[in-house]
Design a protein around this nucleic acid. Structure first.
Lengths: 127, 127, 127, 127
DNA sequence: GTGGTCTAGACCACG
DNA sequence: GTGGTCTAGACCACC
């Protein structure tokens, strides 16, 4: 469980932690059924407040990515079934914004697509 | 200039406005040299405070996407030259997060790639 | 943390505050890792609005001179690595204007150079 | 009389024009007694509003650098006698700010001093 | 007319 | 308790 937080990142810490765990799940490094470390341990490792990690877990639970069994920690949930159609605006918006930033940074489309393929290559949790 | 703000969106309003304008620029609907609407007009249209839109313009100017001529309005700046290498973590991270969300939503890689290509198709401001 | 604002100064207050803090950092009176005072405290000390100081902090963060940890305060960031070449016009222009003012005030070059050396002597945050 | 205005420069246009003329005077390219171009001509050359140039001339006059003879244009005034002591805070402040920016940009003191000497070399109007 | 700054005061997000 | 955002409304600087 290697998670790092970047003080220069504009996202709040709890969000960075949640995103990092999401990334680990999507890459298959944390598979369904795996026990997540206790909140206290992550908090200690990252030297951040306990509530911050709790907020991250809360977000993961709200997304249905983990199930928290009171008293016995959290475990990674099985893969989501696609509930939302791929046309859902709320699904596309973050992607569109990310792509827009790259284009406005001056990258040609081919370079952007190349990056997408590279990044997608590391994500194993697809059907 | 159709911009909408979504109260359910977690991003602050000024950020939503800035992103919307970035999107318009990236799509070529606002081309270099085009005059942007006055801050007051956008504020009135969206029924938000003048300062909120001013904050959006401030961000756009900081990103070098518009040039604000005090006294006359703001105009879209010419396309950025790529200054950062496509390997820059800070450039890839938002994209990685967006892709991760789609994968965790249960979409197969092929569907994700299809969405990317679709979205990228609309962005014209590339070489 | 002694900061004063000068109503006769044409720069906006938030800029004066930002510049004052930059000066403190450059002099080594605020070293990397040091916690900055809360926005509210500086605002109270200077008898200005909270938002004005917040704008100063925003500028300092944009310049990479401080890192703002939402919820805990702001701390001085480590020294920037030189990213821009010393030939950059945008870097030289403010200096050129300042020197021009001194020359036009009737000071001989030697006196100007003397002042430069004096001022530079106080700035400790250099290699 | 080559003057250029930079839309990305944060200073207002009238200030850029005034600074440019100050620079020409300090470099000796405009010597005492020289007739300045009519406001209308500069305005036309730079494609800016006439009032903008008038504001620049007003600032130059306030600084005692030009004398405006009603109806017969403006001429460069003779060199100022040093009226203010070189310790005057208001004289040093702009210089200090410029030096601070360079130091915070990561330049070592020697490099800063080198730039100062280079820039000072072009300024001829000293005793 | 344009954008920029500032105030007073409220509410929210974060740790 | 920290900074961030937003509002309503005022005044200023610039063109």
């Amino acid at each position: 469980m290697f998670i790092t937080i970047d003080p220069n990142d504009r996202r709040p810490i709890y969000q960075q932690v949640a995103d990092a765990i999401k990334s680990l799940i999507a890459r298959g490094e944390l598979s369904a059924g795996t026990q997540l470390p206790p909140v206290r341990q992550i908090a200690a490792d990252l030297a951040v407040n306990l509530n911050t990690i709790a907020a991250a877990y809360r977000e993961l639970q709200a997304d249905g990515l983990i199930t928290v069994k009171h008293g016995s920690g959290a475990v990674v949930a099985p893969l989501n079934q696609p509930q939302k159609k791929p046309d859902a605006e709320e699904l596309r918006k973050p992607l569109r914004n990310a792509l827009t930033e790259l284009i406005l940074a001056g990258l040609p489309k081919r370079a952007v697509l190349k990056i997408v393929v590279e990044e997608l290559g590391g994500l194993t949790r697809a059907k």
